[in-house]
Design a protein around this nucleic acid. Structure first.
Lengths: 233, 233
DNA sequence: CGGCCTCTTGACAAGTATCAAAGTTTGTGG
DNA sequence: CCACAAACTTTGATACTTGTCAAGAGGCCG
């Protein structure tokens, strides 16, 4: 069973105006006067790996900006199986559907320890009526989500398992190409790629044997990105 | 080779205010005064099956509302292969990315004869600054696109070929469950499902033999939706 | 130390891709 | 209107990939 909701650490009100990743985030274009229209608290939260941000059909009352870490968005199948439809990393937004839906159409969980900001939907809708500066940014975030969804279909659901895994590893390492990549469970990797955990395990082993991956510690690997690009085709 | 751009029939200016599918479309919530802000022509077009709406990397100068028929959005792979990332049917919007990107990130072609409205991006951006009534509707259209993308991944890229085909046929027939479904080329069907055209052909033959599909004329079939739902799992 | 969970590996079965050939429809020109 | 070519579809044979079932290895925690 998946770990159930874990109470997140509460870091108090966020300081959007001095936010380090603000250029990536939802409020990039806002000006000083706009922040005066924010009357509900924007919470900064730290979430451990495995914890849930929100569940399927939960009341959709907030949008989440990811500041660090990795979040999975999961569609639960009628047969109980899971399929990870998108991943959200630093700069991305999880649960943007809250702006048009009363409940979340999927579940969101942390794959790695996550730092995020919880923005109540009413803050966004209120700001939208007060300032037009948010519109363009909001549409760009919708586009980002759509773009990631399209990429998932073309890159991670197409071709052989080894190609898909190579593309996923490239994606996971593209933010910091020289840093090692933190892997997660074979089951989650398989749910992203649409293959079984056994196939995932076998393919990772093969990559290790051929030197494409080098294990530094448990689930921490260094990638030969050139070789991966070659495999990805 | 794909058919190249075909000059679309020009039906002249659209009559948005009396549009038959307006409740589904982008301008559902606009009021009389809002239409006064439309200064560029919105064209109504008829497009034959196989014709292109726009190509990859074309200048993105318009958004298209589909009034009838079916449009495929295609990602062209580096190896020349195609993968259909989304389908747009009546009520949906193709090329919404034009609102945030200078060029289209994919190509769009008609799978069936299509009736659509071509709305210049400047009309939408101008209306956005003049009236807030469009914002919510626009976000709903982004959400629809994202939702279709997620559904494509979970329903059409997961499971065995016969399950995927069954789900696609259910999707194609859900607008008019009692009407027969117009199929298209095996190559396109395969590009939607992520399988080869041979596998698609074999599976369709199997469905015909078992009575799940009944051929009425060439590429026009009647579906046993209950049986399809059973196969889809 | 033992139990539990995850990961790895093996053997086999099932599903799909690939290559090839024959059959069918569509469109064109005589 | 017919004949022929081109494109698309169907079907077959075979090889490859992946899923499934099962057992063993390694790590984590009480």
């Amino acid at each position: 069973m998946q770990p159930t909701r874990i109470a997140a650490a509460w870091k108090g009100l966020a300081a959007c105006q001095s936010c380090g990743i603000r250029r990536l985030a939802l409020f990039a274009d806002l000006e000083a006067e706009d922040f005066a229209h924010i009357h509900l608290p924007i919470e900064e939260r730290s979430i451990p790996a495995g914890a849930s941000l929100y569940g399927l059909d939960d009341p959709a009352e907030a949008v989440f900006t990811v500041r660090a870490g990795l979040v999975k968005l999961v569609h639960i199948q009628p047969d109980g199986g899971q399929r990870i439809v998108r991943l959200v990393r630093a700069g991305g937004v999880a649960g943007i559907e809250a702006l048009v839906r009363p409940t979340y159409p999927h579940a969101a969980m942390a794959l790695q320890p996550v730092e995020l900001c919880r923005i109540p939907t009413s803050v966004v809708t209120r700001l939208q009526t007060e300032t037009p500066r948010l519109h363009q940014r909001l549409m760009e975030k919708w586009y980002e989500a759509l773009s990631v969804a399209d990429d998932f279909l073309t890159e991670l659901a197409t071709g052989h398992a080894r190609q898909r895994l190579a593309r996923l590893l490239l994606w996971l390492s593209e933010d910091a190409p020289d840093q090692p990549v933190r892997l997660f469970s074979r089951e989650d990797l398989g749910a992203i790629l649409g293959v079984t955990l056994e196939t995932t395990s076998r393919t990772i082993s093969e990559f290790r044997r051929s030197g494409v991956l080098t294990t530094l510690s448990h689930n921490l690997v260094r990638c030969d990105r050139a070789a991966l690009a070659d495999i990805a085709g």
